[in-house]
Nucleic acid binder design. Structure first.
Lengths: 231, 231
DNA sequence: AACGTATGTATTGTCGACATTCCACAGTCG
DNA sequence: CGACTGTGGAATGTCGACAATACATACGTT
């Protein structure tokens, strides 16, 4: 660790990326979050600090803080002196989540149109979705779909909106993992997106907003049966 | 503690109201939040756990959790191993906060109109604002204004929207406390609200939305000078 | 003087132990 | 039988101490 460190020294070291010290609470939170979003920890499941601390081989402090992080994400709720559990999902909450998502995405579209922001980058994700749909790859489709909508919000150039959307999308992730993969036509889902990009690119505000609203509302249809267990 | 406690026993004991045990972290968080929202703790001010623990005569644990609560409120930021401080406010963040508020309130108005929800209760807050304006009572006006908008969102019957709005309004509180009370005409501010109620009551969607947008945008005008100190 | 290295200080990160609270289940008295 | 009371377990709430980290500062070496 010595030579090339002068001012003009970006010869790109191979894989010596900056190393970050990740606090335990973050590692714990990431693991638990992944478990919740994947549906392996279902709504209503209890989270006991001491048990988790033993299982993960850390003390209770980072577990507590991790759970508090998840609480802020809206994924966990605490009942004082009683316990903590994965927040149960009601049909109402699911509906509210999707309706708020619709408002966020419409807001993003409005800003993109007002600023005449180029939307070419969205095509990349459209292509990825089409490819995933043709390959009948559900996971990839979901990933590409999230990437598309993330990019859409990002183009709106509104940090607070982006943060709010990310937080909201956590729950959407969870909902999608929980409901039986109703296997709607993947190609149809993927096909919904290119028109949105077209409308945005052509500056057709009304059409873009209509398409986004319809798209979001279509996704909101769900079967209440999959979200009942309150342990 | 014995006799009248049977089933039909609500003869209203004098002042033996239910007593709640408030965790220290909540007490600490409430105090710190109040200090931040009132502007006594300005953006950029450092929050040192040990110091606060000594001053408030509790251990560091509740202080840590309280600060994490404020972090979730978006009022505090943490830099690992360096320190925690009241989140600095940029002009951009202020603008984004108000623009998101506008979207929230417009969404609420839309839902109120769709559901044909009666909006009479809003008049109470309008009256309170007018009274405060005539008495030149700035504090009361601000309180009544918040009550009005809170009631407006509440009428939308959307828990998630309400929660998001409350979180957003925290920062608005802070912003209002920080900027020099530019002393716009109190009567004018108060007078902005009754037309909104009228438009909602008469079902005039376009007018209601326009009024709300204009109202929010008028409030968003601010002087960037008051939010610069980064410690 | 410039560079690299050690050290000191302030702060957060983590830990294990103890206190407090709630709930359920028995036990007891009428 | 019915209701109040006490006790025990399980969970979170709080505490004080120690570890790890980052930054600044001073120190030595070249």
């Amino acid at each position: 660790m010595s030579e090339a460190k002068s001012v003009l020294a970006p010869p790109l070291p191979p894989e010596i990326a900056p190393i970050h010290n990740v606090p335990l609470r973050v590692q714990v939170a990431d693991r638990l979050r992944a478990a919740i979003l994947s549906g392996r920890l279902r709504p209503g499941a209890g989270l006991v600090e001491t048990a988790l601390a033993d299982q993960m081989n850390v003390s209770r402090a980072p577990i507590r803080e991790a759970i508090q992080i998840l609480e802020n994400d809206g994924l966990v709720e605490t009942i004082a002196y009683k316990g903590k559990r994965v927040k149960p999902l009601t049909a109402r909450e699911v509906a509210e989540t999707y309706s708020l998502r619709e408002v966020f995405e419409v807001m993003a579209a409005r800003r993109i149109l007002e600023n005449k922001t180029p939307v070419d980058v969205l095509n990349v994700h459209c292509d990825a979705m089409m490819a995933a749909a043709e390959a009948d790859d559900f996971e990839s489709l979901v990933a590409a779909d999230e990437a598309f909508h993330h990019a859409l919000i990002h183009l709106a150039d509104h940090d607070l909106l982006l943060a709010s959307w990310k937080n909201l999308y956590l729950r959407i992730h969870q909902i999608m993992a929980l409901r039986n993969r109703d296997e709607r036509n993947l190609t149809e889902v993927a096909g919904n997106h290119p028109p949105i990009v077209e409308a945005l690119a052509s500056g057709d505000a009304e059409r873009a907003i209509t398409l986004i609203s319809e798209h979001t509302r279509a996704l909101a249809e769900f079967d209440p049966a999959s979200i009942v267990d309150t342990q």
